[in-house]
Computed example of a mutant assay.
Amino acid sequence: MAIDHPIKTLALTSANVSEGKSTVTDNLAIVWAQTGQRVLLVDADLRRSTLHWTFSLDNREGLTTILTSHAHSIDLNKIIQPSGIDNLSLLPSGPTPPNPAELLSSQRMKDFLKAARERYDMVIVDVPPMLEVTDTQVISHNLDAVVLVVNQGQTQKLGAKRAVELLKMAHANLLGYVMNDVVSDGGAGYGYGYGYGYGYGYGNDGDDK
């Protein structure tokens, strides 16, 4: 999907809260880093940030520090933090601002994304749910692609449909979906049949944020 237009900035969102968006985002960033690519994981969910809790980071500075600064330039090395995982760097949200949507749609956010694209092989962004606030709509068209996380037991079909409509209205490049927290009819765990006589089973540890 990135043959004609390389994807270097990717956001993951969901229709509503508590559908596993942040957990999927964090794990995707880790897996990508394990392939040897330099990855920056950004917490742009400025209202319900989780990155600093997941990785035990200091959240006194972060994305909001960059977006609210009046300095002509900012040393990202002083704000971006190591993850303890090879090739993975982290940018927490920073202090909660009174105007998240305005910050995410600002020229400074565009400048930051441009700088991050030049510095990293992949920038993965955790953004707010589509149906909760307008934050993701205002930033999505400045990103190369968006993936929608759908929770099998929680996401409503109408909610997912509306989230897709909003992304299209924002001219976002929707790559597809991640079906999260899948449980087969036969019990716990994932079960996929590919129609070739083989069964594939994946364990489900039940972890979902």
Rank of each mutant, 00 (worst) to 15 (best):
M109Q: 03
E19K: 10
D208V: 13
N173C: 08
A15F: 06
L46P: 04
T68M: 08
T35E: 09
K209V: 08
Q37T: 11
V183I: 14
T25H: 05
Q156S: 14
L57V: 05
P100F: 10
V42H: 00
T155F: 06
N99V: 07
H72W: 07
D144S: 03
D75Q: 11
M130Q: 08
T25G: 07
V39N: 01
L88P: 02
L91T: 00
G94A: 11
S49R: 06
V31M: 13
L76M: 11
N142A: 14
H52W: 11
I66R: 01
R47L: 13
V138Q: 04
I7G: 12
G36D: 08
V149D: 13
S18P: 06
D205W: 14
G20M: 13
Y200F: 13
Y177G: 10
Y120P: 03
Y202I: 11
A160K: 14
A44N: 08
L91K: 02
N151R: 10
V123T: 15
H52C: 12
Y196T: 09
R162N: 15
L10M: 06
L67P: 03
D181I: 06
M169Q: 15
S56C: 09
R108S: 02
K157Y: 13
L91I: 00
H141W: 11
W32S: 14
A172N: 05
A115R: 07
E165K: 07
L166E: 08
V133R: 00
S184I: 09
M179A: 14
P97C: 12
L103H: 05
G193A: 14
P6K: 08
D121Q: 14
Y192T: 04
V138L: 09
G199M: 11
G203Q: 12
A15T: 01
Q137K: 10
I74H: 00
M130T: 07
Y200E: 03
H72I: 06
G197F: 10
D111I: 10
I3T: 13
L90T: 03
L46Q: 01
E19V: 05
D45T: 06
V24R: 01
T23W: 07
G176F: 03
G62V: 02
M169F: 10
N173D: 12
V178P: 00
Q137Y: 00
T35M: 04
K168N: 14
N27C: 04
D45G: 05
A11G: 06
A170E: 00
I66G: 00
D121I: 07
E61W: 04
I139K: 02
S140L: 01
A160N: 07
S89T: 05
D207E: 13
R108F: 06
S105L: 09
D181W: 05
A116S: 05
G84Y: 13
D4Q: 12
S14T: 00
T64S: 10
G191Y: 15
Q81L: 12
E19F: 02
G189Y: 08
L158Y: 12
Q154E: 14
L131W: 01
Y120A: 00
D144T: 00
N27Q: 09
L10N: 07
Y200V: 11
L113A: 05
Q81P: 08
I85S: 09
D185E: 14
G193Q: 13
K157D: 13
V150R: 05
G191E: 15
Q107G: 10
G206C: 11
P129M: 06
Y192I: 04
K157G: 04
S14L: 04
E102M: 07
H141A: 09
V138Y: 08
N77F: 12
V39K: 01
Q81D: 13
A172L: 04
H72A: 14
T54K: 12
